[in-house]
Write a protein that binds this DNA or RNA. Structure first.
Lengths: 208, 208
DNA sequence: GTATAATTACTATACCGTATCGTAAAGGAA
DNA sequence: TTCCTTTACGATACGGTATAGTAATTATAC
């Protein structure tokens, strides 16, 4: 497996590799994977978009699957946010960021791409889960666990259900084809929060 | 556009069409579309799987996109259920049926297939939305609207948010790669219900 | 000069859509 | 009943395009 970043400096005889080539290739690969899916992504087109030739690509990645996997490994799922002490507020911030990501060009398309490829190139969805799905969920779950530990949640509140509904509502909305309201994150958090918060504790949800 | 079902009886001179050929082709096309995606589905493979030759397929559908569209048009989103008078109960029944559908082989894969193809063959996701997405949502929404009209929901309960969370939680769960508990529908409905029901009205949710 | 990168050209294969030929099957006319 | 016309079907082949991956040659950096 070729390192995803170019090697640092010259390490031996012969022509050194251009430092920007790996990045350009990975960028092109990720874009095409997201927009066109794995099957339609082509090594010719990736090379062309990256401004190199195909053998140049093959010198770094042994196959199409290898390159697609490396491109996906460049993805980052989510960035931690500073805690405000208010769980609903933090959830909204996280989901607002998610909304931005998903509704950027190709934000949702990558999901379709890894899903459709699950049977043929399963390493793609595996990587996507590691890099994107689980980090996102972890962020949300941490907020909820803190709220729970702080006594803000009703007994038996189902955190898994909550996390999946928070994230999944965006997917479901996307599938409707309707325009996503800017208020969507707030609406979702408000509804979920009412379902899991301790009764009588709606506006003042402290985390630990 | 060729009718999706074979014509009824003989309508003119010449050899009549085999009544099972259309069905076999559509079945094969839908399976391949779901499992392999549109790009990887091939007319050669569909014809072969259906036990016919390519010209036979082309006699009925003018192009690959045409066939894929027709295959998708065979999909049905959801079947109405008899109302029990209890909204949570009805929601659970609907979602349990959805769970069965999604977690059947290829249940989720078709979603990935239409998503990844959105830019290239948008008629696929358009049809999927008409045939599957909107009917499913309508079923859930109707239950919720009845409950609202019956006074079971809190003022300002966000039905759109609820519907998207109910459905979307399955998608999000699928993306985790975890095994889906049999209790998932119940857990989701319970959590959503607590978020939208009139306070103090948790177990006795009457519809109109 | 040496080793590696990059370029150009190539092979093998798959696929879409179409054309052709021979046979099958139905209805209608003689 | 036989023959003719029409349409369907299987089998095969074809043209054109696209693509993964590779070989041979030229260029470049140290």
């Amino acid at each position: 497996m070729i390192p995803s970043s170019e090697t640092v400096g010259s390490t031996g005889p012969g022509r050194p590799r251009d430092p920007g080539v790996n990045r350009a290739i990975l960028k092109a690969a990720l874009r095409q994977l997201a927009e066109d899916g794995y099957s339609r992504m082509s090594m010719d087109a990736v090379a062309s978009e990256a401004g190199v030739t195909k053998p140049t690509v093959y010198r770094r990645w042994s196959s199409k699957a290898d390159l697609a996997t490396a491109a996906l490994a460049e993805l980052q799922g989510a960035e931690p946010i500073p805690s405000t002490g208010s769980a609903p507020s933090d959830l909204k911030t996280i989901l607002a960021a998610l909304q931005k990501t998903l509704f950027r060009p190709n934000g949702m398309a990558i999901i379709g791409a890894v899903m459709v490829e699950e049977r043929h190139t399963p390493e793609l969805i595996t990587l996507f889960r590691e890099r994107v799905v689980h980090p996102r969920r972890l962020l949300l779950r941490e907020v909820l666990e803190s709220a729970e530990a702080g006594g803000a949640l009703r007994a038996g509140a189902d955190l898994d259900a909550a996390v999946n509904m928070l994230i999944g509502s965006f997917y479901a909305h996307y599938l409707t084809g309707d325009k996503m309201p800017r208020t969507w994150a707030r609406r979702i958090v408000d509804t979920v929060w009412k379902g899991i918060a301790k009764p009588g504790r709606h506006r003042r949800a402290t985390r630990r």
